[in-house]
Amino acid sequence: MGLGMAWLVLDRLGLTENGVCIINDVSLKVGAGRTAILGPNGAGKSTLLRLMHGLLRPSEGAQHWPAPLTQGMVFQRPVMLRTTALANVEYGLKLRGIKPPERRQRAMAALERVGLPAMAERPARRLSGGEQQRVALARAWALEPQVLFLDEPTASLDPASSREVERIIREIAASGTRIVMTTHNLGQARRIAEEVLFIDCGRVVEQSPVEEFFTRPRHAAAQCFLEEEIP
């Protein structure tokens, strides 16, 4: 999938909280199938992601979906309900009004895709961090969203779990779901994304194809960021 038609348009988007400007005048079009949002800590990566997903309401500007798309989100720390892994995956489907036999089937299929069918009946909170994140991915995936937002999905995981989560994200993308993720792991961005949004102090200062961003960053802040991150 190349840089296709824009499916999300941000128009002078801004967010001010308690007088502090967190996102400032962001205008851009997202058309890529796999987008990574990069930037230093505190630059506003997660906030931008939440604005896109609609968890936060912008204080200025607007976002525009040329065609309405179903969305899902996976967070840095998976929120697991105190029930089985399977019931956690089913929960999202239940909210969509999907009835038990189909619900169970789809949830089970999602667990299989993330490699956890054996854990279906285990209490979700008793699973390891990596397994919990995979259950969260299954929960999002079971809903077959057209866009999946991921906020630092591997930040709290060990390398092996991170690799597994990355594999799942690539599979979700391969199934046709658009991916927008924040990460501070540049290797991961490079492995997964087609396009990079670089954000600095609440402004998106660069939007480039991934190879171009890593080889020839245009903005000074991005150059500086890459030099610091890759010594």
């Binding site: 969305q71 989100m73 929120v79 309900l81 105190r82 929960y91 909210l95 809903l143």
Partner: peptide, 27 residues
């Protein structure tokens, strides 16, 4: 505070979220 974003992302109404939190916090 902990569940809010996840539940809203999954599309739970406030009423639904309240019931879910009760069930989840049952202990």
């Amino acid at each position: 505070r902990e569940y809010r974003e996840q539940l809203r992302s999954l599309g739970a109404s406030r009423l639904r979220a309240a019931m879910t939190l009760l069930w989840d916090g049952r202990f």
